[in-house]
Nucleic acid binder design. Sequence first.
DNA 1: CGCTAAGTGGAATGCAGAATTCCGGTTACG
DNA 2: CGTAACCGGAATTCTGCATTCCACTTAGCG
Lengths: 193, 193
Amino acid sequence: MRADARRNLDKIVAAAAEVMAERGVGAPMEAVARRAGVGVGTLYRRFPDRNALIVAVGDHYVHTMAQALDEATRRTRDAWSAVRDFVSWAAEPGRAALATALAELPQETIVDRAEFARAREQWVRQLGGLVSRAQAEGSMRTDVGVDDLIHLLNVFTCHPGTLPEPVAADPGRYLRLMLDGMKATAATHAPPG
Amino acid sequence: MRADARRNLDKIVAAAAEVMAERGVGAPMEAVARRAGVGVGTLYRRFPDRNALIVAVGDHYVHTMAQALDEATRRTRDAWSAVRDFVSWAAEPGRAALATALAELPQETIVDRAEFARAREQWVRQLGGLVSRAQAEGSMRTDVGVDDLIHLLNVFTCHPGTLPEPVAADPGRYLRLMLDGMKATAATHAPPG
DNA sequence: CGCTAAGTGGAATGCAGAATTCCGGTTACG
DNA sequence: CGTAACCGGAATTCTGCATTCCACTTAGCG
């Protein structure tokens, strides 16, 4: 594969991640091409159909996510701070793009891609471990779980286009509000059941 | 106006509210018609264009909202509980529909409808008063405001289609988490500056 | 009960925007 | 330099929605 082709391919995946975050996985192929600074022809040569592109974005996402989680874990002593750090990182602009894959793909095509599933499962478990530790350390409510965390991450991070503008502008602020609600001291209500 | 026509008109507004909540104000007219159980012809006879329909939905929304707020305020002594009550009410299934109007209309057409603007302003102010009282009573963080509350309501209540399924299924749970994060005791961070 | 104006559904039409193809023109690199 | 690998984007086809129109029903008056 020629060097320039390789470069374009990377640009395309990055662009696709961004565009799909903004407009959903069904975003026009041409929008992706334009954002990547290539022609539609180039896009189609590399990714025969939309699914192929989605798969690429999904892989990219899962990989990046796991890596960030690793770092957050390694950097901090207490679990709660690590969770906080990771969430803040994930909410940063540009990261948003990646989450779309996670949010919308399950219904599409990636689910049955073993490799993707495994990678995703890995970082979810990793985050889950952190949550458990935080709860064991008594710094996090026990009536919320990893899934809640992930869902909320998705809510504030996917489809920025459908979010009220101020929220889209600083999802981190709201995510942190959410985290404050998840702290052990914040619990006011009986656990669900 | 014939009785059956009247019935259909009501069904249409209700359906439009639902559909617009799910798919945005630009939702296909046919989808609205189908949901309402009428033909597109009927829809167009009553509402010559999309705007007319949006206006109807918007009015319906604002009116319902103000009323609910009234009740919540009247029913409870302390402001924080009233806020809680109102938010819970607004998150109930079926209510979601209405919020879209608020979230997307300003850029569209309704803004210049004095009546709508006034009604909206009224209930926002009303909720704002509640928030101020809650803060004065020391039960709510002072680094968040009415706008935050409204934005979050919109996030969890509009476009249920773009929300992760569990969140769409019970937005109230997450909204309450959020409220817990807004309680005075939950503040961990310096107010934004 | 019968009449008719009011009301109805949905097929038909027109169009905007997106998907996908194709190929004459470039460019990396042996 | 030569050429196989790449490009961009015009051209064409496809899809989905808005909007119109009219033959068919029905509420409700006399």
